[in-house]
């Protein structure tokens, strides 16, 4: 079995060209491993070897990013690698950005697996963590041995086409994508252990950091509600009986658009809920309890509103990914704008 070919990227410092005073050096290619690349050899064993090292000064890379990337890509491509490794950059900011940027470029241009390593607070980590695997390292080269161990293990997994595990298993910086894994201890024991640490004021790692939700500025109020065309939207899953669009009872991937022409109220004989997350008996008995078509028709007659928009939109908001719900609304909002709908009443269960 021939060894897989790996190309390694390092900066001027780790190539022992020099420190800050040599940060301007342009890209160059050298055969074989160099500096930290030498440490990868034993870990790769018979599976892989570093066939070449590309070097670039941190200042040159960051000040001439496009040129630097193009020059480096040419050199890397010529070495015909099966895998590309950059760094580790630890907490060196410009080096971290360079490692992330060149890794991303190699991944996109050459279509081979790539990885790099850096400290979680390195600005390069935030910029590139969702684009490439970044192994989490300590903040200085003192952590070299540990970084090489983790990076080479992940590299070998990639070379063998083995599935990459969760961030905590394969030691990379979380990519903003939740990945399942089986833990050694069951959840209850992990909770007890975490509580004991918290009680002793010892550090612990939460399994899910609380998210920050984005915000949208409120739209101005409707000037004259008495003449406004208003649409009804629901996440309560009210659909024509038989669920013609097969909207899932949970984790919906679809929404429905249903005609209300000539419909004065939602009859229990014609509509029901497809939602699997709440007791459906009340909604099925009178679907107006979720989508108040009856009241909107009365408001029309009383001229409290201009009109009810001809269609209502419905999906199941039960374990449904925010991304899906967002895409639904983006799509039907276009129609609402085109049709001059001035306001939306959205009901949730």
């Amino acid at each position: 079995m021939s060894k897989k070919r790996v190309v390694h990227y390092i900066n001027q410092f780790f190539a022992q060209i020099g420190g800050e005073e040599m940060a301007h050096v342009k890209p160059e290619y050298r055969e074989g491993p160099l500096g930290p690349g030498l440490a990868f050899g034993p870990a790769f064993g018979d599976h892989a070897e570093i066939v070449g090292t590309v070097i670039c000064g941190d200042s040159y890379f960051n000040e001439n990013m496009e040129e630097a990337k193009a020059e480096l890509l040419k050199m890397i491509k010529a070495a015909k690698p099966d895998l590309f490794i950059a760094g580790p950059a630890f907490n060196a900011g410009r080096y971290g950005v360079a490692c992330g940027a060149i890794s991303e470029a190699v991944k996109n241009e050459l279509g081979i697996p790539v990885l790099t390593g850096m400290y979680e607070e390195n600005p390069g980590a935030d910029m590139f963590k969702s684009a490439v695997y970044i192994v989490s390292t300590r903040n200085s080269a003192v952590g070299m041995r540990d970084a090489v161990k983790k990076m080479s293990a992940l590299a070998l997994k990639m070379l063998k086409d083995e599935p990459i595990g969760a961030s905590s298993e394969d030691h990379y910086i979380p990519q903003g994508i939740r990945v399942n894994l089986f833990e050694k201890d069951r959840g209850s024991k992990r909770a007890v252990d975490m509580l004991l640490k918290k009680l002793k004021d010892q550090p612990y790692v939460t399994e899910y950091p609380m998210p920050a939700f984005d915000r949208v500025d409120p739209q101005p109020a409707v000037k004259d509600i008495r003449s406004a065309k208003i649409a009804l939207v629901t996440s309560g899953g009210i659909v024509p009986k038989g669920n013609p669009d097969h909207i899932e009872s949970s984790s919906a991937t679809k929404y429905g658009r249903y005609d209300l022409e000539g419909v004065n109220y939602l009859s229990k004989n014609r509509y029901a809920t497809a939602h699997g997350g709440y007791d459906p008996s009340y909604a099925n008995e009178d679907p107006d309890r979720v989508v108040p078509v009856d009241m909107m028709r009365e408001f029309e007659k009383e001229e409290k509103i201009g009109s009810l928009y001809r269609y209502f939109f419905s999906t199941v908001g039960n374990g449904t990914a925010v991304k899906n719900a967002k895409a639904f609304a983006e799509e039907f909002s276009k129609e609402l704008i085109e049709e001059n709908v001035q306001a939306v009443i959205l009901t949730s269960t």
């Binding site: 939740r178 918290k198 899910y208 939700f213 984790s251 374990g319 990914a321």
Partner: peptide
């Protein structure tokens, strides 16, 4: 001091808000 146990609905691709 509290520890909470829950599970997540982050979408099939794991990219959506979990809670």
């Amino acid at each position: 001091k509290t520890v909470v146990i829950t599970d997540e609905y982050a979408g099939q691709d794991g990219a959506s808000q979990s809670l």
